[in-house]
Simulated scan of single mutants.
Amino acid sequence: MNAQTWVLGGTGRSGRAIAAELTRRGLSAVLVGRDTDRLRAAAQRTGGETLLAPSLDVAAAEIRRRRPGVVVNTVGPFTTTAPAVIDACRAAGSHYIDLANDVEALSAVSERHDAAAEAGHTLVTGAGFGVTATESVVVKLCAGLPPALRVRTDMVPSISMEEGTAGEALIGTLLGGLRGRRITDGRLAPARIGADAQRLTLPDGSEVTTAGMPLGELLAAQRASGARFVLSASSEAPSSPLMRAVIPAVSTLMRSERLRSFTTRRLARVRVEARERPREHSWGHAVVTWADGEIREGWLRVGDAQRYTGAVPAEVARRLLAGEGRPGAYTPAALFGATLAEACGGEYLLTRPGRR
C-alpha cells in the first residue's frame, strides 16, 4: 500500500473538488476516469496524476495491483459501485471512502463493518455535505449524554451549479430518497415524502421550509444519538400537495432495480444550467430530545455545499493516511467526532439547552 489517494470519477464536479482539497492538504491525488482528455483537463485544474480506467472493473483491478492508500469513490449509484470497489480495497489493504447519501447505500456499507475490522482497513460512507453536516451536529449535541428519545435533522444546502449533466451519483441519491421512511421505535418505518414540513428561521435571519426526505442522515443521526424516533428533513424535499400525491406512485416504481437503474442512467444525462448558489451559507441542523424533557438544538454553518463535499473526503483521507482511523465501517463523525466538521471549515452555533 502506498500513500496515494485515488479519486474514482475524478473528472466529475465532486471528484475535481476532492482532488483540489487533497492537493491543498499536501497529499498525492490520482484522478481515475474513462476519458483521457477530461482527465488531463481536470488534473491541470486541481493538481495530481491521472489514471485511465475505461470501466469500474478495470479500476478495481488497478486498485488490487497498485494498492493505493485510500480510494475515494464518487461514482454512483453507490449500491451498484461500492461492493466491487470495497472488495478491491480489502484485497489491497486500502481504505475506502464514498459520497453515498441514501439509506440503502449506507446500510450496505455498514453491514461490512465486521469484515473490514477483520481485514484491518477502514470504510467511510456518507462523506459529503448532507450526512456529515447533520450527523456532526447530533454528535456535538449528544456528547456525554445518555441515548436520546427523538431527533429531527434538517439539511439546508446552498450550492452553485455549473452547466453540465446531473450525473449518476446525484440522481441515484435523489431516487433513493423517494421511498419515504423514518425511524419509529428504533426501526425503519414508512413515512410520506414531504410530510412534517417546518418553517425554519436560520441563524442569519433568513427563512426556509424543510420537509421529510429520508436520505443517509436518517441512519447516521440514529446511530449517533441512539434515539428511538428519528426524522430527517431537507430544504430540497418536494413539499407541495401535488408532489406529495405523485411521489408514492413513483417511489413504488423505483423499487424495481432494473427500472431504477434505467431511470438513473437516463436522468443522469439531463443537462442542467449554471446558477449561483441561493444563499451565502449551507446549514446542518438538529433538534434532540431526551426522555426527561431536555431539548438541545444546534446548527453547523458552512459555505458552498459542493466545496464542503470536497473537503470532507480529503480530510478523512488525510487522517486515515496519518493512522488516525480504526478498522471497520463508519460515517465521518462516527469515526472522527464533531471536530471533523470544523476541520473542513464548518462552525457550530448551539442554542442553550431547554426543557419541554
Rank of each mutant, 00 (worst) to 15 (best):
Ser235Asp: 05
Phe229Gly: 11
Arg152Gly: 07
Ala274Ile: 00
Leu145Glu: 08
Leu141Gln: 05
Pro54Leu: 03
Glu168Ile: 10
Met254Gly: 01
Thr289Glu: 14
Arg266Ala: 12
Val32Leu: 08
Arg279Gly: 13
His121Asn: 15
Arg301Thr: 08
Leu51Cys: 13
Leu31Gln: 13
Arg244Lys: 15
Ala333Glu: 01
Thr289Leu: 08
Gly164Met: 02
Thr11Met: 02
Tyr348Gly: 08
Leu145Pro: 02
Ala169Met: 06
Ala227Ile: 10
Ala60Lys: 02
Thr74Trp: 00
Ala237Asn: 00
Phe336Ala: 13
Leu218Trp: 04
Gly284Phe: 01
Arg352Asn: 10
Ala195Phe: 01
Pro147Ala: 12
Ala338Arg: 07
Val71Cys: 04
Val250Gln: 05
Ala119Pro: 09
Thr80Pro: 00
Arg228Asp: 15
Glu162Pro: 01
Glu21Tyr: 01
Gln198Val: 14
Leu22Tyr: 08
Ala117Phe: 09
Gly9Glu: 00
Gly76Asp: 06
Arg90Gln: 15
Val70Leu: 05
Leu259Ile: 13
Gly9Asp: 05
Ala274Lys: 15
Cys142Pro: 02
Asn2Asp: 14
Ser256Trp: 02
Ala91Asp: 14
His113Ile: 14
Ala91Glu: 13
Thr81Trp: 00
Gly284His: 02
Asp37Cys: 02
Arg319Gly: 06
Thr132Ser: 11
Pro83Cys: 06
Arg319Ala: 10
Glu163Tyr: 10
Arg258Phe: 10
Glu207Ser: 10
Thr264Tyr: 01
Glu207Asp: 12
Ala29Glu: 08
Asp57Thr: 12
Gly177Asn: 09
Thr351Phe: 08
Glu324Lys: 12
Thr80Ala: 14
Gly33Ile: 09
Ser94Met: 06
Ala274Asn: 08
Ala191Ile: 00
Gly346Ala: 03
Arg296Tyr: 00
Arg301Ala: 07
Ser28Gly: 13
Leu123Ala: 10
Ala224Tyr: 06
Glu135Lys: 02
Arg179Gly: 04
Gly120Asp: 01
Glu162Met: 10
Ala166Asp: 07
Ala195Arg: 08
Gly323Tyr: 12
Asp114Ile: 05
Ala105Glu: 06
Leu22Asn: 03
Val137Glu: 01
Thr165Gln: 15
Asp102Glu: 09
Thr209Asp: 08
